[in-house]
């Protein structure tokens, strides 16, 4: 589904990703771990198409097509979804309106008929029940005045409604208490399927107790320095990140 080869990316003049390679197949859950500043969030934003990030080398192939030239909205329409680390507040636009606009753009792209407000509200209600989202959230302005936990749950709710092929969770666990973490993880687990891949970006192993990954990758200084199964996350939790940084230095020297 997703094939990243030797990816280099910059924000401003600063190179953050320095030769990152990663392969993700449908149905897989990949965890991207790493210390602060290693490039985890940059990877997430580059995949979603944030205009402030520039790809300066390497390739990103998604569903057989080159992704780097595509606009953020085209990526969304083709099934990429980023759950933001810091979801943006949009005063004056209700969650329901916002989601319907996006949902219908995606439907149009797929050649499916758009849903009117009534049918869409029905869909929202169903989804909100499954994910235990308070219905009052639907008519509130997007993320405005939401607590940190509500914002993160709202991201997962959007994920559930938009049904992407590739879901990227950027530090979804940050700022969540244990109950919110459990609720968010439960939501994500319900959305796992053989057609959908997840890229779970996180600093801590904690989230991976709930969302159990198929693969764990350690990112350091803009490239993946170690990959393994879910047990790698436990080892990182125990030993920290320092011991895996060494191969990065060795790699750079090579």
């Amino acid at each position: 589904m997703l094939e990243i080869k030797d990816l280099h990316a910059t924000v401003g003049k600063k190179e953050i990703l320095k030769g990152l390679s990663l392969s993700v197949k449908a149905g897989e859950v990949h965890a991207i771990m790493g210390p602060n500043g290693s490039g985890k969030s940059t990877l997430a934003q580059v995949l979603a198409g944030h205009p402030a990030y520039a790809v300066t080398g390497g390739t990103i192939t998604y569903m057989g097509e080159d992704l780097a030239e595509k606009s953020p909205e085209d990526r969304a329409k083709e099934g990429i979804f980023l759950a933001f680390q810091y979801p943006v507040e949009i005063p004056g636009v209700s969650n329901a309106y916002f989601l319907r606009a996006g949902y219908n753009e995606i439907r149009k792209h797929r050649g499916e008929p758009e849903l009117d407000a009534m049918d869409f509200n029905k869909l929202l209600k169903e989804k909100s029940k499954v994910l235990h989202i308070d219905e009052s959230l639907l008519n509130r302005p997007v993320n405005e005045g939401f607590s940190g936990g509500e914002k993160k749950r709202n991201e997962i709710f959007q994920l559930a409604v938009l049904e992407p092929k590739l879901a990227i969770l950027d530090e979804t666990d940050s700022g969540l208490d244990i109950d919110a973490l459990r609720a968010v993880s439960e939501g994500v687990n319900r959305l796992r399927s053989k057609d959908r891949a997840f890229l779970v970006v996180t600093h801590y192993q904690r989230l991976l107790n709930y969302i159990v990954p198929d693969f764990v990758h350690v990112l350091s200084e803009g490239r993946i320095v170690k990959s393994g199964g879910k047990e790698l996350a436990l080892e990182l939790e125990k030993r920290g990140y320092d011991w895996v940084k060494a191969p990065a230095a060795a790699g750079a020297a090579r």
Partner: peptide
């Protein structure tokens, strides 16, 4: 905000 909307499929 514009980018956030775009990331949800809006031109």
């Amino acid at each position: 905000m514009v980018y956030y909307c775009r990331s949800r499929g809006l031109a």
